Simulated assay, not measured.
Amino acid sequence: MILPKTGVGTFRLTGQTVIDSVKMALEMGYTTIDTAQIYGNEAEVGQAIQQSHISREKLFITTKIWTENLSAEKLIPSLKDSLQKLRTDAVNLTLIHWPAPKSGISVHDMMQNLLEAKKLGLTEYIGISNFNIELTQQAIDSVGAENIATSQIELSPYLQNEKLSQFLKSQQIDVTSYMTLAYGKVLNDPVLHSIAQQHEASTAQIALAWALQKGYAVIPSSTRREHLAANLKAADIQLSTEEMQLIAQLERNGREVNPSELAPEQWD
């Protein structure tokens, strides 16, 4: 896997809140930070990184191209703007944030535009986010699976996305899980709570441990030091085969994020 297994997400965090979150995470040993153009916090993330005085080569920074910037005319200038805000010459990973089938830009073209950014040295790796199998295949046909480092998709015990995950695995494309806690909905799950008690852990840690044990990278966000620390320690939890099977039974297609203008017309 190219990506470090556990990173810190910044979705919905802005201003001083995101600065404090990222600085705390870096102090605690996180090296991976996930942001996006649409989050409106790249400048604050860049500020937090600079204030942390951690050498750039020790960090793995991901950003995502917003749907308005997918064209050949806009993608590279928008990424250069992101780099300026992040105070770096290049990011480690740049993703197409949403396939936006109604944008009028084909998957082939947006991936070619992104590959050009990689060739220019603006990003070390490229990838996709929120693509179904059909659109992922189009991305592979455009730039080759070897040029798609990861697919970042919504995954949680309530949305296990097994068909898509298996397809990505077959193409040797790493999976990054976001919304792993389903907006907090899994935190009171009785099955996860029971497993958590066996491991003297929290339900959040069990959900993250499940994703990590499936081979996914995770990028949970938090504004609290104790939660950031707990999220990092989830990697130390080893779930039994029986526990993994119990979590597998929690699948209920519980998708939390599905904007009609941006998402695939049909999920797998």
Rank of each mutant, 00 (worst) to 15 (best):
L3V: 02
T6H: 05
G9Y: 00
R12L: 14
Q16P: 01
K23Y: 11
M28F: 09
T31R: 05
D34C: 02
T35I: 08
Y39L: 03
E42W: 14
E44N: 06
G46I: 15
T62V: 10
I65L: 10
W66N: 12
T67M: 12
A72W: 09
E73A: 14
R87Y: 04
S103H: 07
I105T: 04
D109R: 04
M110W: 02
M111A: 07
L114W: 04
L115S: 11
K118M: 03
L120K: 12
T123K: 00
E124G: 06
N130R: 00
N130H: 03
F131W: 01
I133K: 07
I133T: 15
L135Q: 14
T136Y: 10
Q137I: 03
S142E: 04
G144M: 10
T150S: 06
Q152M: 14
I153G: 02
E154G: 08
L155I: 13
L155E: 01
L155Q: 08
Y158P: 06
Q160G: 06
I173M: 08
D174H: 14
T176D: 01
T180Q: 00
K185P: 02
D189F: 00
P190K: 13
V191M: 10
A196K: 08
A196G: 15
Q197M: 14
Q198A: 14
E200Q: 15
T203W: 07
A204I: 07
I206F: 11
W210L: 06
W210C: 06
W210K: 03
L212Q: 13
L212S: 08
Q213I: 10
Q213M: 14
G215D: 02
Y216E: 03
Y216H: 05
Y216D: 05
P220M: 05
H227W: 00
H227S: 00
L228K: 00
A230C: 06
N231V: 00
D236N: 09
M244T: 14
L246T: 12
L250G: 01
E251F: 04
R252S: 15
R252P: 06
R255M: 15
E261H: 12
E265W: 13
E265T: 15
